[in-house]
Design a protein around this nucleic acid. Sequence first.
DNA 1: CCCTCGCGCTAATGCGCATTAGCTGAGGAA
DNA 2: TTCCTCAGCTAATGCGCATTAGCGCGAGGG
Lengths: 339, 339
Amino acid sequence: MPPPDPAHRRLTQRDIARLAGVSQTTVSLVLNNRAGADSRIPAETRDRVLRVIRETGYVADPAARRLAARRNRILGVFTYEPVFPSATGDFYHPFLVGIEECAEQFGCDLLLFTSAPTVDGRKRVYHQDNRLRLADGCVLLGRELDREDLARLVGERYPFVSVGRRDDAGGTVPYVGADYASAVRDLVVRARALGHERVAYLGHGVGAESYADRFRGFAGVVGRPLRLAPGEPADMAERVLAAGVTAVFAEEYADAAALADLLGRRGVTVPGDLSILTLGDPTRPAPTDIDFTGFLIPRREMGRQAVEDLTELIEGGPPVQRLLPCELTEGVTLAPPTK
Amino acid sequence: MPPPDPAHRRLTQRDIARLAGVSQTTVSLVLNNRAGADSRIPAETRDRVLRVIRETGYVADPAARRLAARRNRILGVFTYEPVFPSATGDFYHPFLVGIEECAEQFGCDLLLFTSAPTVDGRKRVYHQDNRLRLADGCVLLGRELDREDLARLVGERYPFVSVGRRDDAGGTVPYVGADYASAVRDLVVRARALGHERVAYLGHGVGAESYADRFRGFAGVVGRPLRLAPGEPADMAERVLAAGVTAVFAEEYADAAALADLLGRRGVTVPGDLSILTLGDPTRPAPTDIDFTGFLIPRREMGRQAVEDLTELIEGGPPVQRLLPCELTEGVTLAPPTK
DNA sequence: CCCTCGCGCTAATGCGCATTAGCTGAGGAA
DNA sequence: TTCCTCAGCTAATGCGCATTAGCGCGAGGG
């Protein structure tokens, strides 16, 4: 590549140094406030340098900075599912709000790894020419992270924090998750207290950690846990009714909404004839006016906390795993059973 | 900073070179597919290098790459108003969708400049220690961009594209805007065709380019354009009625919604007694069930196009300014005047 | 008068890569 | 044989910065 037009070449520390009549080293020292015992800079010199910097509007090249100092104040954000495109977009949005807030607070920029190509319908961190190392560390977002990716990140000692609990992958995976198990357990206990004996879990209950955790919480307090696969929406209502339960715990909010709708058409009232509880926020659009009883995922807080943990990890701290409590929502879809 | 534990030091081209029994230069050449006449590499050597790269999973350090090659495939996104926090969030979301889509298509990552501190209630591109130059170029988003920022970007020949038309700022400002003037004109013409003679523009009509453009379109086809400042919502309805017009063109969707609501309470029907037209999508939450006649801003497309123009600008292309057409919405709030 | 000593600074180096300018050895021409 | 060519590489350099080692100098001590 030809060298850029010198007239428009941007300023470097050397330029500043020349203008201030000092060395490049001194500029760097002033810039980074390195007033250590090994290199003191009198106020006069410092002011002179700072004045030139102010007048010229010099800003350090972050790439060079990263190369030399291995630090950037840039945090990566990798999302396994598309964030902006709106199907799941509204679900991930609050996480990003938290991430953004906290990043701003720490004075960090956010690098969204949008370039990751989609292979077999999934994104992968490690692809040809990934730019992971441009950031000091990375926040991982998505329902299902690739286990190979995780193992490799762990193996390479790359600083990252997962939003959402993850099973170990060849080492400790740092995460900020939601305490689904406890939240589900609390809901079941509450339903029990109202008299519900025959209850069902509507959902997969396996696969993604978030599903498994919910079902674990359910199975932990229900003797012989009954699980109904969501399956075809069309006959979901039938299967639920056939199960002869008085309360349904829906893994997916959208399933709860669909179920309520289907039941309504059949004249089955909620919560009169059947109680329905939601186990988290909608991950897909679920048009409904019903104020479900259930719990909310502390998404924003999870985002914030992930960034906080990440910065500490980058500083050399130990990997931490933590679960944040979910907030129960009163709602109107849980009532004592009538039959 | 102490050198990192060599056991965990990540691979460099030199490591690859050693493993493949070639020089670092060769690795670089293979990696960048530099098969020019000046440096030919036989298939055998190339394959050997590629195999080592594959086996080790080597990926080039993007910071070093940027430093040496001055290219990054990272596009910056600077937003003058907060994007995620949800007040205006829903308005900006579609722009980001378009930006993200197009960036992915081009294999670019997105750098969100979240670290820009808010000064005097506004964000500024140029602040202490900004990281603009980490990206190859930048997309600017926001209703009102800072003119000083713009002038400086232009002056420094920094590649950027504004989403939304901007007046020149010491040079041509590349933008992808919405053709508000034409859209408003079309709406006025349409209202005229239905018999509306006395019409009013409800809004500022000055300040941000997007406001000015709308009013310009309005004033261009209305003899003595009447402009009503939005002012206090409480008496907005009174002022509109006092103006004795048959159709109102509302700059802000939220104002249209508020107006319709206020009129409804007074028994004034829309569009029976008064037609109301909206000039774009809601920039603030506007709860309403009304299907307004007006137009939509091609936000997603604007985002896409901005990224496309930006990449061409980075490639050395000329700055382009373009306006995208707005889509008229039929709606139910425009009808022939009754008085 | 020499000899520390510490202050205030700078020369030199390397981060990992892309790029330019060669260098080497084999094969062909003279 | 000698020279030339050219394919196939490599050494060297610099991108802009942070960092390390250390230089020159004046003050204070012996």
